[in-house]
Each structure stands twice: as structure tokens, then as C-alpha cells.
């Protein structure tokens, strides 16, 4: 499977990554190298093996439902570029 520059630009847009035109060609070729390695892996016969969700045989520890966090607004809110009435301000998002 090979991808072209259009796919690179589309994925970059979805991930909000900036890929310049001159980088696009190189990125496409490097990603295609990776994909050809994946193609090689795909040739292994894994028909009898269940997909693995995690490489180690461990599972998620669970937390008790008890409040442990405190209000940290005063420390974190000033990091944002704009805030008002205890809200973070962003460019208007609704059409």
C-alpha cells in the first residue's frame, strides 16, 4: 500500500500539523518506506492468533470512586491566552 501527497496533507490537516510543500515530498516518501515495511509484516500468517490489546499480560487497575482532586483553577487558568468569568476563551466555534 502506498500513499500520495494528498493523503499526507489530509492527515496533517486532521491532526492539525503543518507540513510545508517542500517537506511534503520527503514525508510522503519516508512514510511509504514505513508502509512497505508494514506490508512485509502483513505477509506473516497470523490467522490463528487473536489480536493483542497490550504486549504484556497485565490489566487495568481500577480506582475507588473517591474525590481526590482539588480545585486548581487559580494555578492553571493563567496559562491560557484568554479567560473570563472562570471560563477559557477561544475563537467562536459555532457557525
Amino acid at each position: 500500500m502506498a500513499i500520495n501527497q494528498d493523503t499526507i496533507l489530509r492527515v496533517a490537516h486532521l491532526a492539525r500539523l503543518q507540513v510545508s510543500e517542500q517537506d511534503c515530498e520527503e514525508t510522503t516518501s519516508r512514510l511509504n518506506d514505513i508502509l512497505s515495511m508494514v506490508d512485509q509484516l502483513q505477509q506473516a500468517d497470523v490467522g490463528d492468533i487473536a489480536p493483542m490489546a497490550h504486549p504484556l499480560d497485565v490489566h487495568q487497575p481500577l480506582r475507588q470512586d473517591i474525590i481526590t482532586e482539588t480545585d486548581i483553577r487559580a494555578e492553571v487558568m493563567p496559562i491560557a491566552p484568554a479567560q473570563e468569568d472562570n471560563c477559557y476563551l477561544v475563537p467562536r466555534v459555532i457557525e
Binding site: 470512586d65 473517591i66 474525590i67 486548581i72 487558568m77 468569568d85
Partner: peptide, 20 residues
Amino acid sequence: QTKIFSGSSTQVGAEANSQA
């Protein structure tokens, strides 16, 4: 009482961003 992945309160009606 708390969120799915953190120990923050889920109480409705708190001041904005005080439970994040």
C-alpha cells in the same frame, strides 16, 4: 462521585472549571 479517569468531583452546578 468522580470522573471516569480522575478523582475530580462530578457534582453539577459548581463554579466553571473548578472541577477540572
